[in-house]
Nucleic acid binder design. Structure first.
Lengths: 195, 195
DNA sequence: CAGACATATGTCAAGAGTGACATAACGAGA
DNA sequence: TCTCGTTATGTCACTCTTGACATATGTCTG
């Protein structure tokens, strides 16, 4: 079983979904920490079904094309449950921006500062969007958020990871940008004085 | 040019290195945000040389096998400089542990808590190791850390990202573990009372 | 002297993931 | 009527990445 398989099972454990539905989910909440295109999802669904972890039935629709709705099987649920507490295999973190930071000493300070400010904004925006969802969850779901046996708690937990991640990323971008800007200003002043 | 190519150029911009040296670097500092095995590095070096971004000379050694030491060319340096401030292409974040958290409501609380405590420890340890390096850098490199035109500043910047990342990750693991543990205790108490 | 380990460089098959191509039904608007 | 957008499912070629296989030199330890 692949990690993508478990990602799909994780969604199917909450509700029956079509490949198309799954593709949408992989852009949203779940997509923020595991994403996939439909070209990966459809073959993976076939594999899950072959392995007995999911089944599908065709739902005929009149105002749209028919769809295949997938449901998780007891075997699938059991496999997911076991996987969920097995220690994750350590995957390397790959962050292009941090790699760029490693070579930032070669770049023009103005361009460098601009890039980090842009990225700071991107992460601040993502953070704001997460915080909105968080406020909604806390208002709407209330006590469930303290009950780890509910899927609501699980959704909330992943959201909290997103919030911490984006907060940290934005903070770091800001620090880099400020460092570069501060140094540029000092250089500018020195130049003025020497004239 | 691939991202891995720029990762290698980023290292070569600081010093001339062999493929073997690069493989070691890809496990350490740089490997914490971009990693590669030697099976990827050797072909990539050949490609960099073909494209004129790097050159190599064979260094004969008596106590070990000979090696090829690679150096970045002016073209390579220029390409790296341009790349360093181009906005990074948004790559999806893939974190298996967060995906597991999404299905944690299905799992046994004891196993779930144990896994998150284990992961918390792992990230605390990585954090401690980063903090050590940080203390060393701040003591040893002093004023350079405020000069964005130095490669030392760049190394320090990537380290700071690592520190924020690990701190946030450990914090989140702790929060999940505590939530699960708290709920288990409450459930235990309720059970005792009802007897 | 055998075996393990570090240095050193390479290839190759297989899997994961992306982007493009392909098809089809239906609704809405020009 | 034509085109565009949404829903819906699929394939394919290519790239990136991993893990295994392969080879060679020299040191150190039992």
């Amino acid at each position: 079983m692949t990690t993508l398989g478990y990602a799909i099972l994780g969604l199917l454990a909450q509700e029956a979904l079509s490949g198309y539905d799954l593709t949408q989910r992989m852009r949203g909440r779940v997509g923020n920490f595991w994403s996939a295109r439909h070209s990966q999802i459809y073959p993976e669904l076939a594999r899950l079904e072959e392995d007995g972890y999911a089944t599908h039935r065709v739902v005929e629709q009149q105002e749209r094309p028919d769809k295949k709705v997938y449901e998780i099987t007891p075997d699938g649920l059991e496999a997911l449950k076991v996987w969920a507490t097995k220690p994750p295999s350590p995957r390397p973190t790959r962050e292009e921006l941090v790699l760029k930071a490693y070579s930032i000493w070669l770049a023009e300070p103005e361009k460098a500062a601009r890039m980090f400010r842009d990225e700071e904004l991107r992460h601040e925006e993502q953070l704001a969007s997460y915080e909105e969802t968080r406020a909604w969850m806390e208002g709407e779901w209330g006590e469930d958020l303290a009950r780890p046996e509910t899927s609501r708690f699980a959704s909330y937990a992943t959201l909290r990871r997103g919030i911490i991640y984006e907060k940290g990323y934005a903070e770091w971008c800001r620090w880099v940008a400020e460092s570069v800007e501060r140094a540029s200003e000092l250089a500018g002043e020195r130049e003025k004085k020497s004239r």
